[in-house]
């Protein structure tokens, strides 16, 4: 039993590595490489986001704040200090995001439910406005273009593998967290916060911890994105970015660790395919997610697992 689950776990990771590892071999056009990089980064963004929502029950409509921060630290450092600051900028961005997440988080955890969601939105919009208006420093609405990674990392294939490594490692770390005692307490906070207090554990303290963890990994996703698009833009902070990651998560399934993973792939592919035929892709996405919410609230992964479960049960009974 145990070796079997270990085998399954290993083969899952191996499959992911192989599929994404082979992308540069088969998809040679810049466009396809770009698409694959986007998918990887959004997978990280969505998975980190769902540590808050699916796991702990905190729906943030403002994780774009950290996505943007992670990107802007890299972009602005390269702009003002040169290409060599690309990776240091990323690291500084993570530390800064952790500090900002701590400060904002201390305020956020004072409110719950819809108010939490609104407050996250307000903070993200505030940061968006600051970046938008501070034209002299941030380039405002124009953003910054032409941001290049140093040395060999400016090669798209090298950078792709760099992203792949970081994203897979991050997802692995997040999964360990989700299945650790700490992750268990977070699930408990989601289901019954009052009882958690009677386990002798502080609800808000744990919410704050996961808020910081989530935000740091979201910032990492933002930092990585700079090397793909070679630009930063205020749109990274805007609330529809936060909205998009929510759509991905619900598409894949909020109560499954790999839900956002699958959801991110699905949503970006849909966007890409639909986008080729019509400019009205948000109509299509909106309708798809609407149907998911109404009819298949468990998401792609959740509904698939349920089907599989039923099938296995049937087989067992039949045999």
């Amino acid at each position: 039993m145990k070796t079997e689950s270990r085998f399954r776990e290993t083969s899952l990771w191996a499959t992911i590595m192989i599929i994404f590892g082979l992308v540069p071999v088969f998809m040679t056009s810049t466009y396809q490489m770009n698409l694959a990089s986007h998918i990887l980064i959004w997978i990280l963004f969505a998975t980190a986001f769902n540590m808050l929502w699916g796991l702990t029950g905190m729906l943030s409509f403002g994780q774009a704040l950290y996505y943007g921060l992670g990107a802007y630290f890299v972009g602005l450092m390269v702009k003002y200090l040169g290409s060599a600051w690309f990776f240091p900028g990323m690291a500084i961005g993570l530390v800064a995001s952790a500090i900002i997440a701590l400060l904002i988080g201390l305020l956020l955890i004072r409110v719950g439910g819809v108010y939490f969601t609104m407050l996250t939105l307000a903070f993200a919009q505030l940061m968006y406005q600051i970046m938008f208006k501070w034209y002299n420093f941030t380039g405002g609405d124009d953003g910054v273009v032409g941001i290049m990674q140093p040395g060999i990392f400016s090669n798209p294939i090298v950078y792709y593998y760099f992203i792949l490594g970081i994203v897979i490692a991050s997802i692995w770390i997040l999964k360990r967290i989700a299945y650790s005692p700490f992750g268990m307490v977070l699930r408990c906070v989601n289901q019954n916060p009052d009882r958690v207090r009677f386990l002798g554990r502080r609800v808000r303290r744990n919410q704050l911890r996961i808020y910081i963890v989530s935000s740091v990994f979201v910032a990492l996703a933002g930092g990585l994105m700079v090397g793909v698009d070679n630009s930063i833009h205020t749109d990274m902070f805007v609330w529809t970015t936060s909205g998009e990651v929510i759509l991905m998560t619900v598409l894949g399934g909020i109560n499954q660790f790999f839900g956002p993973f699958v959801g991110a792939i699905a949503l970006i592919l849909i966007e890409d395919i639909v986008g080729a035929y019509t400019e009205y892709w948000s109509l299509i996405i909106g309708t798809i997610v609407l149907i998911m919410v109404l009819l298949f609230p468990k998401g792609l992964v959740g509904e698939f697992l349920q089907l599989k479960h039923r099938f296995l049960k049937l087989k067992k009974h039949g045999g």
């Binding site: 029950g57 729906l59 409509f61 819809v114 109509l283 996405i285 997610v289 609407l290």
Partner: peptide, 23 residues
């Protein structure tokens, strides 16, 4: 998790209505 789904559902409505208006 009704509150979350409400926000999500109405967010989808924004996307849909926005595009319908454009069309």
């Amino acid at each position: 998790h009704e509150a979350g789904f409400q926000i999500l559902l109405t967010f989808c409505l924004i996307l849909i209505i926005d595009d319908l208006v454009k069309i």
